[in-house]
Simulated scan of single mutants.
Amino acid sequence: MLSLSYPDVYSKILYVLAGFSVPIHIFGGYCILLKTPKIMKSVKWALFNLHFWSSFLDISISLLAQPFLCAPVFAGYQLGILSWIGVPTDISELTIRTLYMLVPISIITMFENRYYILFVQNGYWQYIRYPFLMLNYFAGLTYCIPVYLDVPKDQEIARRKLFNKYPNACEFASDKSLVSVINFGDTAWTRLRDNALTFTLLVEIITFVVLLRVKMNRALKTSISGDTLRMQKKFIKALNIQIAIPILVFFVPTAVGVLIDPVKDEQLQHNLIFIAVSFHGVISTILMIDLQKPYRDVFLSIFGCYRLAPVKHATTLF
């Protein structure tokens, strides 16, 4: 287990995960873009948006950047293929932090899409939904601009300051001249900004989940023909599972980290978190293919002995 603290072992594990996950991400995108039935047309692009950002985060960590962070400050270097072509470490690190925000924003977009299509197409929400979504994406895309502006311009001086203050930082790095210092610790303003955005996105997700559940239950009780609503309820239930289970992947390494001596094995803790997060999207993709019948049928028709039949009724989608 302690060997995961070393860059070479950590990098090889991420490459293995990338080799496993990239084909699955590609197949998931293929299913959404080319095999989504017409009856699911309204959810197609929102589902692809979620798939794209989740996959991009996975691939960025496991293949492109492979960030190797050196706590207790925000510093480190990259081991992935971006380092081969000379992409600056600070750019790739801040891009990954931005993707961390775009994934939950894409989840909000997915739930908002279902809420709008099913219940409020003719309500007041149709006038504010696009400004609402645009504001979310603007916040996510500009999230790291203040951090980038604070990156020390003279990295040689920044590294000297880092190792003078924390002699054991990046102790597993074979070449400490590769270390890029992003900043020397979160300020009160940085913590406030991060926590405020995270809390806002969490509240939005919970709000749409609750609204969908309440509206769906009411509609099923009052609707004369509830077949379409029942189909949509199954879809949303499958979507909840598709999103909830990968989210748990974020918490497992954090919980393990609490049990590990943060002074002795802090590098191990960081590496475990990145390994787990790099795998969250592929779990989501596998669940999507398994839980959504049209995509499951495509998979079985290609890799199994199942003959794909045309969809005749909406109730056969799940």
Rank of each mutant, 00 (worst) to 15 (best):
I157H: 12
I85A: 09
I275F: 05
V9Y: 07
Q232R: 07
M110E: 02
L4T: 05
L47T: 12
A255G: 13
A65E: 06
G80W: 05
D154S: 00
F208Y: 15
Q121Y: 00
P37D: 08
C70P: 07
V277Y: 13
I91S: 03
E112Y: 09
L192H: 07
A75V: 05
D58R: 06
I286R: 05
D175Y: 04
Y15Q: 15
L102W: 07
L17A: 08
P131H: 03
I59L: 11
T36Y: 15
K237I: 12
S21R: 06
Y306P: 01
Y6C: 04
F132T: 06
F48H: 02
I275H: 11
L178Q: 14
V147R: 04
L50D: 01
G86I: 08
P310G: 12
C305M: 10
R160D: 13
A188Q: 11
V120Y: 09
T254M: 14
Q267F: 09
I224Y: 14
D90G: 04
M101Y: 11
N49P: 00
T200E: 10
G76C: 02
Y295C: 02
V73K: 05
T198M: 13
Y166F: 15
P131Y: 03
F20C: 15
N271L: 13
V181N: 04
W53R: 03
L229Q: 12
M134F: 11
F163G: 10
F279H: 03
T316H: 12
P67I: 12
G29E: 13
F274S: 06
D194G: 12
Y137H: 01
F299D: 00
A276T: 02
L102E: 10
H280F: 14
R193N: 00
F138C: 08
K38F: 08
G304C: 10
H280T: 15
A188I: 10
D150S: 10
I289L: 13
F111P: 03
G226K: 14
I289R: 01
N217F: 04
R114C: 03
H270I: 08
G80H: 12
K176L: 04
V252N: 02
N195W: 14
M288R: 09
